Simulated scan of single mutants.
Amino acid sequence: MISAEVAIYPLKTTHATDVIESSINTLRNGNVSYNVNSMNTRLTGTKTEIFRSLESMFAEAENTGGEVSMVVTITNASK
Rank of each mutant, 00 (worst) to 15 (best):
L11N: 03
G65C: 03
N35F: 11
M70T: 08
G30Q: 15
V71M: 13
L27C: 03
I74W: 01
Y9W: 07
A7M: 08
N37M: 09
T64S: 15
F58R: 13
G45K: 09
S38C: 12
V36L: 15
E55H: 07
S78E: 14
M1F: 04
S22C: 09
R42Q: 13
I50Y: 04
I24Y: 04
Y9P: 02
H15G: 04
V19L: 02
I24D: 10
N37W: 05
I24T: 01
A7P: 00
G65S: 02
M70V: 11
S22R: 13
V71W: 02
S56H: 05
G30T: 14
N40D: 14
S53C: 14
V68S: 02
V72I: 14
N40V: 00
S38E: 15
M57D: 02
R28H: 13
T14P: 00
T17N: 09
A7Y: 01
L54I: 11
N29Y: 11
S53I: 02
Y34E: 05
S3R: 15
A59V: 03
E21C: 06
P10Q: 06
T73F: 10
L11D: 03
S3I: 01
I24K: 02
L11E: 08
R52T: 12
T41N: 08
E21L: 13
T17V: 15
I50G: 00
N40W: 00
A61R: 02
S38D: 12
P10K: 01
R28V: 08
K12N: 14
R28N: 15
S78Y: 10
T44L: 05
N76T: 04
T48L: 15
G45V: 09
L11T: 10
G30K: 10
R52F: 08
R42C: 07
V36T: 12
M70E: 05
N35V: 14
F51W: 08
T46A: 05
L43P: 01
E49L: 06
T44S: 11
A61W: 02
I2Y: 10
N29T: 11
T64H: 10
G45A: 09
I2S: 07
S22W: 02
I74C: 08
V19K: 05
S38K: 08
I8R: 01
K47L: 10
Y9V: 10
I2P: 06
N29R: 10
E49T: 02
L43F: 03
E55L: 03
Y9N: 03
V68I: 05
G66V: 04
H15T: 14
T75F: 06
N40H: 11
R42A: 10
E49D: 12
T48V: 13
M57W: 02
I8L: 08
A77N: 15
I20F: 04
R52G: 00
R52E: 12
A16E: 14
S56N: 15
N35S: 14
A4M: 02
T26H: 03
N76C: 09
R42H: 03
G65A: 04
T13M: 06
E60V: 04
M57L: 11
L27H: 09
Y9R: 06
V36W: 05
S56Q: 15
F58W: 06
T13H: 07
Y34F: 14
S3H: 14
I8D: 00
N76W: 04
S23E: 04
N76P: 00
G66A: 13
E21F: 01
G65E: 04
E21P: 00
G65Y: 03
E60C: 10
M57H: 03
T44P: 00
N31E: 09
T13S: 14
A59G: 00
T44N: 10
R52N: 13
